[in-house]
Amino acid sequence: MSRRKLVESVLINAFLLLFCLIILFPVVYSFLVSFHEPKTAFLSILPQRWTLENYARLFRYGQFPRYILNSIINGVGGAVVTTIAATLTAYALARFDFKGKGAIEAFILGMMMLPGLTNLIPILKIASDLGLLNTYTLMILVFGAYGVPLSIWIMKGFFESIPRVLEEAAAIDGATPVQTFLRVVLPITTPGLIATLLINFVYNWNNFLTPLILINKTSMKMATVGLFDFQHVLEGNQDELLAAACVVIMVPALVLFLRLRDYFLQGMIEGAVKG
């Protein structure tokens, strides 16, 4: 390696490390705040005395564990619904050349761009007519639908990267289209399915406004709304407790992302770049 290249590489790495520090800081900071004793959050960056009391209080107050369970159920359920629906559609769009395909693609893309807030009233209305208010079914269906457009794009990218020869070979061997899809196509697109599930789970897990408006029952609330309640139900300034709640909400997404990073990245590339 030439001397110039070495210097360049050192400079670039130094810059990127600094950049990563800046990116990381707010996340680390919220962890630090959560270990401070009450009313000491802003006296020093590092806690003068480290404490887990905020976490203990978080789980003592109210039904926070229940909220987390709800977030998991709605998040996973929504992601599963999205993945199933989007996979089928993406397969159709990637493999068949049917009439109206262009229109359907444009329609789905257009649906990604609607501002969602005012939609909540009609959704509330439909849900109440169907007797679905405050049920997991409602949240799973709503989350399931939210994720569909992006997920179709992700899965379409994956399907298009599979050589068609495999399916043709299966067809020659006498497999029905359904068998081909289940036994040949799906196993190859496993990374795509994982990516879709993960991305949608994280989106659903983080959603705040939808559960805020659609859920009226304490036992059915999601963790993000619970966090908001903490901010408003508790007396005075309790930033440390709030930080603990923030951390608890951040951790699952962080762990999933750190362990399964490549699926996330590949999924996003397929969805947004090739779509």
């Binding site: 209305k125 109440s128 009226n216 304490t218 901010q231 408003h232 139900v233």
Partner: peptide, 24 residues
């Protein structure tokens, strides 16, 4: 009994009312 944050109470009642039902 259901808990609703104090500054969300009116919002949630108004939304539920507008959507036509399921009010406390």
């Amino acid at each position: 009994y259901e808990q609703v944050a104090w500054d969300q109470m009116a919002t949630k009642v108004a939304f539920a009312h507008q959507a036509g039902g399921d009010l406390p």
